[in-house]
Nucleic acid binder design. Sequence first.
RNA 1: GCGGCUAUAGUUCAAUGGUAGAACACUGGGUUGUGGUCCCAGACACGAGGGUUCGAUCCCCUCUAGCCGCCCCA
Length: 445
Amino acid sequence: MADIASKKRKRASKTPELLRGFRDVIQEEAPYWQHVQASATDLLLDYSYSEIQLPILEATSLFKRTIGEHTDIVSKEMFTFEDQGGDSITLRPELTAGMVRAYIEHGMFNRPQPVKMYSIGPAFRYERPQAGRYRQFNQLSVELFGDAQPVADAEVIFISYLLCKQLGLDVTIHINSLGSSESREDYVQLLKEYIKPKRSLLCEDCKKRITKNPLRLLDCKEEACRALFIQAPLLVDNLDDESKKHFVAVLEHLDESEVPYELDPYIVRGLDYYNRTAFEIVASVTNDAVEGEEATVTNLIVGGGGRYDGLVEILGGRNTPAIGMAFGLERLVSAFKKTKSGISSEKKPQVFLAQLGEEAAKHAFTLFETLRSNNIRVRANFGKTGLKPQLELADKLGVVYTVILGQKELLDQTVIIRDMENGIQEVVDLTKIVDEIKKRLKKGR
RNA sequence: GCGGCUAUAGUUCAAUGGUAGAACACUGGGUUGUGGUCCCAGACACGAGGGUUCGAUCCCCUCUAGCCGCCCCA
């Protein structure tokens, strides 16, 4: 009877579920996020990047003007709506636009240049979800304003590479140069002329691309199209002299600092604001071997970026060169989880505090806090009454010692220290507990 | 936005046109204050809606969600 009632109740009030493309990071996964974030921020702070925190909502026009009205992101992927005052606002689809806005709004061009900063937080795009692709995803965005030299490009790429390496990832930088906007236009003309006579042989998508986004033609996955483009002129071969020089210098920096890279003439990037350097960070991820099959290796784009020298001016700031990149944290974490590096055991609990009896339970908080405030990593479950379940917990947590405080011990002002490995127990004075534990932990090493 | 595959306990998987099992995990117990093994017990699931049928978790349709590919990107 009770079953039927509860089933009916369940059906009547269906639990609300996650929105499509959204996710929770639950307990088991959180440590990986903490590790990746801590690892990233430590590195960035060492290289003088400071944190900036930005709002998640911005005026819709910010993204239209920076990313480009006709890009996929702006034309169909943004979460845009009107607020109560009738203004059009948008959940940010990336962080760079906000960074540039903040750079201008806070007069950062009056600070010593370059201004180096990073920001971490969620971004939103209304896309079809897939593995490693969510509608809310977290980005780590790294930007360097006010330095036009190739060394700035190289620095951002170098740090990105270091971060991946630090996480134990096997990555390669795929890099290209988009040249200046003028040289790019010239090139597009060249490409169009090249393909005109072959137009009828192209796939449907490519026919659209000729007018919509000609640079994408080169990226087509269709065999037939690829064959056609194999002979096509390349963007890199048609750069203006300045961009060519710049690109070569960036590559020399990368050679010198031993950053593994591949020239990839087909990288175009979907945001309008890039010029010159454009790159993607590709991680080789080894998937677990499924039964009967070999482990496979897949390539995952964990981050990408490039130079955007015109962007500050587009938003009304003074002409400021800049370069930046963004990591997709979901992808970074997922790749990191598949490495063997794992998370350090430094935060593992050392001691479990078990209490027995009402009086002891009342004193348990105090004892726990004594241990904790003396930098002993201690765990407890104050709600358990029996000793057995508490020892089970201690075992699961993998602590080295369990401190037992029972009725009898409380009367004598002592506690029991149990060595979880061999079960040997010792009674020690309550006042000496911290020293005794510390002494033992030190010896254990 | 388009195409393909999938949808059963917390997880990984079974079985079945007559409403479901296992393993692991979880909770409790194997006497009174002692974990890692073992034994016993318990709670928890057919994604949603419609159709065919005497009857559907199983067949059909729609929706939703996940995965993969395209597109695009982080």
